[in-house]
C-alpha cells in the first residue's frame, strides 16, 4: 500500500542512493517508519520562514584557514593496515569498469 507520505518505490530509490541493500520486508518496515516520521515533521510546514536564512551553523565561526605547509601523513604501511584488501601498494577494490 503506497498511500502515505513515501512510497515503497521511493524507499527503494533512496536505498539505492544510500547503497543499502534492503529486502521487501525491510522496505515495508522502513516505509511505515519513515511515513510516521515524515508525518511528524510535517508540522514544520505551518512555520512561516519567509525572509529567514538557513542556519547551517548556529554560531558564526571565524576559524583561520590552513597554511600551505606540508605536515606528516601516514606511511603506506599504516595507511593500508585497515584495508579489507590490498596489494601492498594500494587499496584493492572490486573491479571498476572505465566509465561504469
Amino acid at each position: 500500500m503506497d498511500d502515505g507520505k513515501i512510497s515503497s518505490e521511493q524507499v527503494r530509490h533512496v536505498a539505492r542512493l544510500a547503497r543499502l541493500q534492503l529486502d521487501d520486508v525491510e522496505v515495508e518496515a522502513l516505509r511505515g517508519q519513515l511515513d510516521a516520521i515524515l508525518g511528524y515533521v510535517a508540522a514544520l510546514d505551518a512555520v512561516d520562514v519567509t525572509a529567514l536564512l538557513p542556519s547551517f551553523h548556529a554560531i558564526p565561526i571565524l576559524s583561520p584557514l590552513r597554511e600551505d605547509v606540508a605536515t606528516p601523513g601516514l606511511t603506506r604501511e599504516r595507511a593500508l593496515a585497515a584495508a579489507p584488501a590490498s596489494d601492498g601498494e594500494g587499496f584493492a577494490v572490486p573491479k571498476v569498469l572505465e566509465g561504469a
Partner: peptide
C-alpha cells in the same frame, strides 16, 4: 522542503 526548511526553522530557534 525538508533540509532547507528545517535549517530555517533552526534559525528561529537560535
Amino acid at each position: 522542503a525538508f533540509y532547507i526548511k528545517a535549517q530555517k526553522v533552526r534559525t528561529l530557534m537560535v
